[in-house]
Amino acid sequence: MKAANFAYARAADVDHAIELLSRNGTAKLLGGSQSLGPMLNLRLARPSEVIDIAQIEDLRVVRAHGDAIEIGAAVTHAELEDGVHPPLVGHPVQDVAAGIAYRAIRTRGTIGGSLAHADPAADWVVSLAALGARVRLRSRSGERIVEADSLLLGAYTTVLAADELIVSVAVPVSTPTARWGYHKLCRKTGEFAEASAACFFDPSRNCARVVLGAVDGPPILLRSLAAHLGDGATQGLTREQVKTAVKQALPERDAIDLRLFAAALERALQQAGVTIHHQVQGARI
């Protein structure tokens, strides 16, 4: 199957892209085309116009501002993986980018495009929520900042208005005290996750965040568990505490799903240095 007919326009800059969007309510933005391309070919998306924003210079830069690093929406996963931008070398986003799908997809796919597509199982959805990232949006009405964990309203649905686009994503600068973990479970390498979890702890910022991803809607913040660990739980957690936190967050899931999410969460926490204790007959070992 091939895409239905549509007009094509290449935006010269962000303002031009917004102008094109605002005059055509059914237009779609095109970044790396790794999500929109297949949807066009399957006719799941039938825009009257496709607006190419992949080469807009303002969307292709990475800048460090104080305690945050701003990543342009059209920066590709491969560029993040390869450390093309010095402020992000050794940053958690470099590890996340390296695990997205396949290399061929990473060379084209963009961080902004992934967020706008809003697949609940996507890597950036959960990892940026754990990092406490902020997404900068722009429209004819001006700019606004949205927390990454509030961007999704549901599967493939975001808070973006019809004439609004993602300009950049701001993530915290790495500090010596920061600890991070991200794990996903897939049927095979390169596929979207069946279950995922991410966590981020930085005592110097009084920050503790634990998130479940690959759920049916927006990522789920495990606030109680994060608060417990953020309060200096030096003894770590028991496996039962991990399972309980997952079950409370996903009460409608069956036992198999709960085991998958608990395994993903446990491994993410261990990556961040959290000790997970096993219990046998009430004794900790």
Rank of each mutant, 00 (worst) to 15 (best):
A268K: 02
H16P: 03
G112P: 00
R259T: 07
G99Q: 05
S174R: 15
A116D: 00
V61S: 10
P251C: 09
E194P: 02
A116H: 13
H85P: 00
Q241H: 12
S174G: 06
R63S: 09
L222H: 14
T189L: 10
C186G: 02
T107N: 15
F261N: 00
G37L: 10
L229F: 09
D82H: 11
V210T: 03
L165N: 07
R134W: 10
G154I: 04
D163A: 04
A178D: 08
T238H: 14
G90T: 07
A198Y: 08
A214E: 06
Y8K: 13
A262F: 04
D202W: 05
A3S: 12
T26D: 14
Q271R: 11
Q281V: 11
R106A: 03
N206F: 00
M1V: 01
A45Q: 13
T234S: 12
R138S: 10
R10V: 14
H85V: 01
R267S: 13
V211N: 08
L42H: 13
A227I: 03
I276K: 01
Q235F: 02
A73C: 06
N41F: 07
V242Y: 01
Y102S: 11
Q270D: 05
L88Y: 11
P92H: 05
E191H: 09
G112C: 07
A27H: 00
S141R: 14
F201H: 07
L131R: 02
A161I: 02
A27N: 02
I256R: 11
H65P: 05
R239H: 03
V274N: 03
